[in-house]
């Protein structure tokens, strides 16, 4: 079998006889092919990742409202934002959305996965149907639920009135609206955690559980000491991905509350400053702060994931 060094030597041999090779051959040669293949990616990254980043960095040091030429401000934008209560409120709302949604999705998802973890007739159909909410676009999802949750004739309120509850303005009462948004998110994403855990449960080693059963371990003990630790990496994957997506929550708000009724989460706040107030300086600064927060949280969770993967091995 060839190893890296051999390949390089074979490649070099004909080169010693020829002085110069055409550019195409050089690029596709053993040495450069790996970089040649990522050129398109690097171009796209250069344009679409670096340009916005540097634009935001530049603008964040300026006062730029509407189309007036930007004026240098130094760190004023950052100072203003970090002392702004509205900003911290929106961060708080995002944080509570993340905690509530991820918490419920993990526990309920694991519960339902344990419940469904058996062979039964029609399991593929049930599985396929349960996956459908994942395919619904976030905006369409929010509009659907807006109709069901309508205060006067929404079906949920009609059903509530049957059992004697009074109408609830699910999407316009502050204190309720944010929980309604959370509920919609959970409805859409619960299947994801269910099926991640189902896949994980199917892949568990059978003999360990057999041994536990032979030793007379109770089901609860087996679950706590065997199942849970083995599921931990999968839990971390769900947590990592869902936290990343929930921080970026904004689509369902466009169809429902538009940031009103106490639902102004972090990304909606950025959107409002940048695209409704058109304060580009503050908007870009906010975007950068939000990006930094996301990367820090992402890195911490990624560490935990790697650790969980290492421990599971």
């Amino acid at each position: 079998m060839l190893n890296q060094g051999d390949e390089a030597r074979i490649e070099r041999l004909p080169g010693e006889f020829r002085e110069r090779r055409p550019a195409w051959q050089v690029l596709t040669s053993e040495k450069y092919i790996k970089w040649f293949l990522v050129i398109p990616l690097l171009v796209v990254l250069g344009v679409f990742a670096f340009y916005p980043l540097f634009y935001c960095l530049y603008m964040s040091f300026h006062e730029a409202i509407l189309i007036r030429p930007p004026e240098f401000l130094g760190l004023d934008n950052y100072r203003k934002i970090l002392h702004n209560r509205l900003f911290w409120n929106s961060v708080g709302r995002s944080a509570s959305t993340v905690v509530v949604c991820v918490g419920i999705e993990i526990t309920l998802g694991l519960g339902i996965a344990l419940f469904l973890n058996r062979e039964f007739r029609g399991q593929n159909i049930v599985r396929g149907l349960c996956l459908l909410p994942l395919m619904v676009s976030p905006l369409a999802m929010s509009l659907m639920w807006k109709y069901f949750l309508e205060p006067q004739f929404g079906i949920v309120n009609v059903m509530l009135s049957w059992i004697g509850f009074s109408q609830v303005a699910f999407l316009s009462e502050s204190g309720v609206a944010l929980y309604t948004i959370m509920f919609m998110e959970i409805w859409k994403w619960l299947p994801f955690s269910i099926f991640v855990f189902l896949a994980a449960l199917r892949g568990l080693p059978k003999d360990a559980f057999e041994a536990a059963r032979v030793d007379g371990a109770s089901p609860w003990f087996t679950f706590k000491k065997l199942t849970l630790p083995m599921l931990k990496p999968f839990m971390m994957i769900v947590i990592l991905l869902r936290v990343m997506w929930l921080i970026r929550l904004s689509d369902p708000l466009f169809g429902t509350t538009q940031g009103g009724a106490g639902t102004e989460v972090l990304d909606w706040y950025i959107y409002r400053i940048a695209f409704i107030r058109f304060d580009i300086g503050e908007g870009t600064t906010l975007a950068l702060i939000a990006l930094l927060m996301t990367i820090i949280i992402g890195a911490v969770l990624f560490r935990q994931l790697i650790k969980a993967l290492g421990a599971a091995r």
Binding site: A49, D267, F275, G283, A287, L288, A290, L291
Partner: peptide
């Protein structure tokens, strides 16, 4: 990590 960017980061520029 480009997936972590708030879409607004890209949208403004």
């Amino acid at each position: 990590t480009t997936r972590m960017f708030p879409p607004v980061v890209a949208a403004i520029p």
